[in-house]
Simulated assay, not measured.
Amino acid sequence: MEAAQETPDRPPLDRGALGDAAFLSANGIPQLSVVESTGSTNADLLHGVTVDPQAWPDLSVLAAEYQSAARGRLDRHWEAPARSSVSVSIVLRPVNAEGRPLPTQSYSWLSLLAALALREALLETAGIPAELKWPNDVLVRGKKIAGILAQLGPLGDGAVPPVVLGTGLNVTLTASELPVPTATSVLLEQPATVDRTALLKSYLSRFATLYRSFCNADGDPAAGMAGGPSLHKRVEHVLTTLGKQVRAQLPGDHEIIGHASRLDDYGSLLVVDAGGHEHLVTAGDVVHLRPWTPPGEARGESGYA
């Protein structure tokens, strides 16, 4: 339980460490900008890749100390105190080592790849064990610590369509500052550190390694990557959604209740209903995905309608 609250120390991101030429070069990051305040880093980069595509090459990074109009999936809005989070967006132009564009159907894996990279960064940098919740959340002990949003940019003149990948990680939010009771922050999870610069550098390094390996495998989630198992296997291994009874509310008041069995080749969730029928649920379609306990049965901590 959290002790009596004082506002934690919230130093700025270390722009010198983030802009270090050796760090950027080692991770293939052509530019990394930090702004004090903006509406949304995702919106800024979507505007940037539309107005001046050449100014935002692959793996360009924009971070903000404060966002006033951050958006999540389904256009959900949230706002956190300045310097309390890692708020960062990355421009992706996925091509393989020969410069051949990845098939756009592989883009659905990018948010899961980012979640995996953030999970690794949290474990190594802060000593916090995390899991993934399909399609785009990172959880610690069942509570959301981060969300990820991938948005497709304009196709332009036939070039590779860019993706803007935004990540919001709660770092020093106190219990009273959390947006919902089912959220958490690095500060609240007995971390080894709450250094946002160290967390951001670790995340970007892991993301760049996994991303480049994924691109060089032509976006094949079944290919071994970065000297280890495939992206598909890595994600399924830490995906807390699998094996649970879930209720997926879809657009148009449709609902699927069943057993979350596996991910398909495109990162979509396969849900088996009571009749044994398998349903494909895509990240773009799902409105809500929640653990589900049949009426009349005892509900554990993770089971709720």
Rank of each mutant, 00 (worst) to 15 (best):
R234N: 02
V51L: 10
V171A: 02
D20P: 08
A150C: 08
Q67V: 04
S268G: 09
F207G: 00
R262S: 15
R15P: 00
V95S: 09
V138P: 02
P53Q: 14
G300E: 15
A223S: 10
A198Y: 01
S185R: 04
Q151G: 04
G147E: 02
H47Y: 14
V35W: 03
L113Q: 02
Y211F: 10
D264I: 15
T182N: 13
Q67M: 08
R262H: 15
G258M: 09
R100I: 05
R15D: 05
S60P: 03
L269E: 01
A208D: 05
L113N: 00
W56E: 07
L110S: 00
E98A: 14
R299G: 07
P154F: 04
R234I: 01
T167E: 02
A69Q: 06
N96W: 02
T240G: 02
K143W: 06
V194A: 13
A198L: 12
L263G: 03
S302D: 12
L173I: 02
D273I: 08
V171M: 00
D265R: 13
S205C: 15
K244M: 12
V194Q: 13
G276V: 06
Y304I: 14
L242T: 08
I90Y: 03
F23R: 14
T7W: 06
A305F: 12
G296F: 12
V238Q: 06
R83Q: 09
D157G: 07
E65V: 02
R206G: 15
